[in-house]
């Protein structure tokens, strides 16, 4: 790709220039290979099963032997279903497409760090969408949100918000394929033999449908949005896509898009309701009791955490008391003692 020299004032051409997309958190942290995705999910699932099994065993030995835990591909199906539910909700609220796409991305990314057996997607989905309205600058009041969703209270949404944000590593900005498609569609009009208006409109409508389908797949976790958009256009009219790619001097991308197209066509199906219902039924049994508010395991865990926090607080108070007894509240500074690593407590 040619690097042009800027006009007017001469600027010192730097040795290499980093493309803006490669500076984004999406590129740096949320881009995987097929194999990595698979491996991550499997290992996440396995460790979750182990942990939950132990919790069951701790409570009642032998109770876990006849529980059928979920497999990672079943988890994936469940998440997929809830992706479609996000789209439905967005239609209901008339949220812009940006919100829908962002919410879906958050949901998918969340389950790369967590298992459905710990957190059921039906709440995570609500939270992810709510968070997306905020990060895309289309905020809606919590009140307005929950009152429009049946059987939902404010705490259902808010309790998980911090967890979702944490799981996302607070990386909120996402480049989406639908914007890339729009840009692509505009740029196609710049080609020497641009198609006429009616065709253009037709291609756009088809391609946009494919973009929506792609959200059900792993495409955004593997490919950059420009490639996904090009694949969708290619599904509408492969010649146009190829011409454009050649005009951009990016012929190599034409090798990549067939796999994207396959992914969209094969993995873009909405999961069947019966299959999902079955999974959901099994989930009720195998979900992690530690996360169920009020259950024995939950209370036990809370107690353990409380004890740890208490001992930490006591240690801190001890430290302060000792300092006071030494006769100097400013003991640290004057004695030259190294400042302690401050425990980052909530009460700091």
């Amino acid at each position: 790709m040619a690097l042009p020299a800027p006009p007017d004032v001469p600027s010192i051409p730097p040795p290499t220039r980093t493309p803006l997309f490669e500076g984004s958190t999406q590129f740096r942290n949320w881009r995987f290979s097929q194999q990595q995705l698979h491996a991550t999910r499997v290992s996440l699932n396995r460790s979750a099963v182990t942990a939950i099994r132990n919790t069951f065993e701790a409570d009642l030995p032998g109770s876990s032997s006849d529980i059928q835990f979920l497999e990672s591909k079943e988890e994936l199906l469940l998440v997929k279903l809830y992706v479609t539910k996000i789209s439905q909700l967005c239609g209901h609220f008339r949220f812009p497409e940006e919100v829908e796409a962002t919410g879906i991305s958050y949901l998918k990314r969340f389950y790369l760090k967590n298992t459905v057996m710990d957190w059921h997607p039906k709440n995570v989905m609500l939270t992810a969408l709510f968070l997306a309205t905020k990060t895309t600058n289309n905020p809606i009041s919590l009140e307005a949100y929950t009152s429009n969703i049946p059987r939902t209270s404010a705490s259902d949404v808010l309790d998980l918000e911090f967890l979702v944000a944490q799981s996302l590593a607070f990386e909120f900005a996402i480049w989406h394929a639908h914007r890339a498609l729009w840009g692509l569609w505009l740029d196609v009009q710049d080609l020497p033999n641009a198609p006429n208006r009616d065709d253009l409109q037709k291609y756009y409508d088809t391609a946009v449908q494919h973009v929506r389908t792609s959200r059900l797949t792993d495409a955004e976790l593997i490919y950059p949005p420009s490639q996904i958009a090009l694949a969708c256009l290619s599904l509408a009219d492969s010649d146009l896509a190829a011409t454009w790619a050649r005009a951009k001097g990016a012929e190599s991308v034409l090798q990549i898009i067939p796999s994207i197209k396959d992914m969209i066509l094969q993995d873009g199906q909405v999961p069947s309701v019966e299959v999902v219902r079955e999974i959901d039924r099994r989930l009720k049994v195998c979900k992690n009791p530690e996360k169920v508010v009020g259950s024995k395991a939950y209370l036990a865990k809370k107690e353990k955490e409380e004890r740890e926090a208490e001992s930490k607080r006591a240690k801190k108070a001890e430290g302060v008391r000792k300092a006071m007894e030494d006769g100097d509240p400013f003991g640290d500074e004057l004695n030259g003692a190294a400042t302690a690593i401050a425990a980052l407590d909530d009460d700091d």
């Binding site: 905020k134 905020p139 919590l142 808010l158 918000e161 911090f162 607070f170 909120f172």
Partner: peptide, 13 residues
Amino acid sequence: KDGLDMSAIREVK
């Protein structure tokens, strides 16, 4: 009352 504060989100984002 609306959860994570918008300004905090913006800064981080």
